[in-house]
Design a protein around this nucleic acid. Structure first.
Length: 436
RNA sequence: GACCCGUUCGUCUAAUGGUUAGGACUCCAGAUUUUCAUUCUGGCAAUAGGGGUUCGAUCCCCCUACGGGUUGCCA
């Protein structure tokens, strides 16, 4: 039997990071088993659906690198893939229920008559869970068709899963208690139900429920914040699932290879934005300078900087120093701009260093005299002045860094000297000396 | 309230009837890079509480507490 999974989001807002992880687990499971992954849009709630929300789902899925084999924009044998277009199919299955005497009218709506017995599900994550449907007060017959003729979630969800041949349903734990309802529906239809796997929810860092405004909640924010898709995928994959190794950095291909539902946890996980950034940094560090430069370019341009001919080298200089692409403009602006700004606090630190003051005032001129400019030549010149002042070169590296970049941290000093060139270095050191 | 699921460092997690309860993020300290935001080394830090079962419980059972979920003509 070929594995078929699906992601069935409702386009009522934005793509939530929890939804993205649900999609990811379904996608990984399908890819791992050589199966198919279906995208189905559950747009039955006309009042709340929006086109923007639909687009956010497609964009988010594509950005994260989860392609679907069937669904919107892709087609397939089980379409249409929008529930709003599947009315006749639902009518047909509703008639089956009606013919079997399993529904009854109530206030214009139609309720499904549950069988009054204990229902046991064998969840691939939660194990055996039994809900007693003999307790009617706890499990009242559910409405499947509203008085306006539309169908409710439980009904369409089940019909679509069976019509689409879904073999494994991986979804959030908020659906665990819905599952017996779905099982009863499958039984009434005389169709073998899929296997279910309920995965724990994702909460905020403080344990509260994640909502729209919370940091990290909307997938659409990640590209803007400077995350790499593979970084985000890697991080959310590890929330609630463990790869049974102490490694933590995985490519998409490695995730597919390792993924298994057996190692999904049961307790809700909290979202740690710091660790998410760290994982992103690991993926950033894996890129080549060219790839990194290309990925960071939009951020650099948006910050009003002009990436010149040496831009790839400039970007490469900070590749392993940033956690997010959005940090790149601030990190490289002194390499791309003629006029730089000095961080007052950092300048103050150098100001207290009398040796640095003295050496800096002479260094600009010395730099200008160097005939064959190179980082080594510049450092050598610095060393000579340091010695004359009775100090060590190491003590002057920091002041020189500040003179050239305006800040206390950044790329390797040698790289800075090379990228900036003689003229700029001489000029900046001269100017800096005057500030002291 | 009822029903369901859960609970290991602050966070993500590993282990499992016998370990000094391991790793990662964060934080702190050292090292190295003649500079740094990288890297390396080290440190802080956990089995929710109470009862059982057992030679031995973080692990199995029960109770309590706490957290989450469900309880819609939302999905």
């Amino acid at each position: 039997m070929k594995v078929r999974t699906r992601f069935a989001p409702s386009p009522t807002g934005y793509l939530h990071v929890g939804g993205a992880r649900t999609a990811l687990f379904n996608w990984l499971f399908a890819r791992k088993h050589g199966g198919e992954f279906v995208l189905r849009v559950e747009d039955t709630d006309e009042a709340r659906n929006t086109d923007e929300a639909k687009q956010a789902i497609f964009d988010g899925m594509s950005w994260l690198g989860m392609d679907w084999d069937e669904g919107p924009g892709k087609g397939g044998d089980c379409g249409p893939y929008f529930q709003s277009e599947r009315k006749e199919i639902y009518d047909k299955w509703f008639d089956t229920l009606a013919d079997a005497g399993r529904v009854y009218e109530d206030d214009g709506a139609w309720r499904f008559k549950f069988e009054r017995k204990p229902v046991t599900m064998n969840d691939m994550v939660c194990g055996e869970v039994t809900i007693d449907y003999r307790d009617e007060s706890n499990t009242p017959d559910m409405v499947v068709k509203r008085s306006d003729g539309s169908y409710v979630f439980h009904f369409v969800n089940v019909v679509d899963d069976l019509e689409m041949g879904v073999t494994h349903v991986i979804r959030g734990e908020d659906h665990l208690m819905n599952t017996p309802k779905h099982l009863q529906l499958f039984e009434a239809f005389g169709v073998e139900p899929p296997r279910y796997a309920h995965i724990p929810l994702i909460l905020n860092e403080d344990g509260s429920k994640m909502s729209k405004r919370d940091e990290g909640a909307a997938v659409g924010d990640y590209p803007k914040k400077g995350f790499l898709p593979e970084g985000v995928v890697n991080f959310i994959a590890l929330l609630g699932w463990n790869p049974k190794t102490e490694e933590e950095v995985f490519s998409m291909a490695e995730l597919i290879e390792r993924f298994s539902l057996e190692h999904v946890n049961r307790a809700p996980g909290r979202f740690d934005f710091e660790k998410c950034k760290w994982v992103n940094q690991q993926h950033l560090a894996k890129l080549t300078d060219e790839e990194f430069a290309a990925a960071a370019k939009p951020f650099v341009v948006a910050a009003g900087l002009e990436p010149g001919a040496d831009y790839p080298a400039v970007a490469g200089a900070v590749r392993e120093k940033v956690r997010l692409l959005s940090e790149v403009p601030d990190a490289v602006d002194f390499l791309l701009k003629d006029e730089i700004s000095y961080d007052p606090e950092t300048v103050e630190k150098v100001r207290g260093n009398d040796v640095a003051k003295g050496v800096m005032s002479g260094l600009g001129g010395v730099f200008a005299e160097i005939s064959e400019w190179s980082a080594d030549a510049a450092k050598e010149a610095l060393g000579v002045l340091a010695k004359e002042a009775g100090s060590k070169p190491g003590k002057l590296m920091f002041p020189l860094r500040v003179a050239l970049s305006g800040k206390g941290g950044g790329p390797d000093l040698g790289v800075i000297l090379e990228l900036l060139g003689k003229e700029k270095c001489a000029q900046r050191v001269g100017k800096f000396a005057e500030m002291l």
